[in-house]
């Protein structure tokens, strides 16, 4: 039998298909970034199944996670992204003790229990200051993409200081810095530092090693090292950072099937 996980995130949909006997990742997909709808997520799922020539009838169970999980009609059940990322990271990086996950609109620190479960977690409140959406917003302001933001930041000698507590204040601050002549690379580096600082605050010194970095933001160059500095420990990027939620959901589907 095959089990599926769909991570309907706020900016991207992710799909994972796993064989339930040996827990092998058979196929995966990451959708185009943008505002995601349930229809788009289901289309991506069907496309992935077709592309990898997976026998549709062998798919026994589908678990949905992520921001849009409740809207997916095809899912047998839903599980929160916190539980799914924990399970997915443990599968990809079995030694992991802590997961730092930064997605489109959420950021979280998850402490693992050693068996793929969650011991404790913290998640950002209303504010988007520590999220992928915030980085995207800054990248737009600097006229580069999210990946370009990381490349730009690499050229900075002196990262700008930006208040980490509020995305709206931070944007105002960035406009102020740029109009006062700050270099775009220093602003880009400053923004990465501020997101990393925000995560360290969320972790309140409880992040245990090894720390694994997951979520789409882990793909931005320079973010992992900014996070390593803020947490004062080496942070490793998960081998498929965008897919940890979908893989976790598929693994949970295997367990429940």
């Amino acid at each position: 039998m095959i089990c599926a996980g769909i991570d309907a995130g706020s900016r991207t949909t992710k799909i994972a298909l796993m064989g339930d006997g040996d827990e092998v990742l058979l196929a995966s997909a990451v959708g185009e970034p943008g505002a995601c709808t349930a229809t788009q997520a289901e289309e991506l799922f069907e496309k992935t199944v077709a592309q990898h020539q997976v026998d549709r009838d062998r798919i026994g169970r589908v678990v949905a996670t992520g921001y849009g999980r409740a809207a997916l009609q095809m899912a047998d059940t839903t599980v929160t992204e916190i539980t799914c990322h924990a399970r997915g990271v443990q599968f990809l990086e079995p030694r992991a003790a802590t997961v730092v996950e930064i997605g489109g609109q959420d950021s979280k620190i998850i402490l693992l229990d050693g068996n793929g479960g969650v011991r404790d977690f913290v998640m950002n409140d209303r504010c988007a200051a520590g999220t992928g959406r915030f980085l995207e917003m800054v990248a737009e302001r600097l006229d580069v993409g999210a990946v370009g933001l990381g490349e730009l930041a690499a050229g900075s000698q002196k990262p700008a200081t930006i208040n980490p507590t509020c995305a709206v204040f931070a944007e105002t601050e960035i406009i102020g810095l740029l109009s006062a002549g700050a270099k775009p690379q220093d602003v880009a580096a400053g923004v990465q530092e501020t997101v990393a600082t925000r995560m360290a605050t969320l972790a309140v010194g409880r992040a245990e090693r090894p720390v694994v970095f997951a979520g789409g933001v882990a793909l931005i160059p320079g973010m992992a090292s900014a996070l390593s500095r803020a947490l004062a420990c080496q942070v490793e990027v998960a081998s498929a950072p965008q897919l940890t939620g979908a893989i976790g959901a598929a693994l949970i589907a295997c367990r429940e099937a």
Partner: peptide
């Protein structure tokens, strides 16, 4: 919706335990 996610994750943790 965000509060609900955190509460659901808490309950998943409790049940997992």
């Amino acid at each position: 919706a965000r509060i609900e996610t955190r509460v659901q994750a808490l309950f998943e943790t409790v049940r997992g335990r």
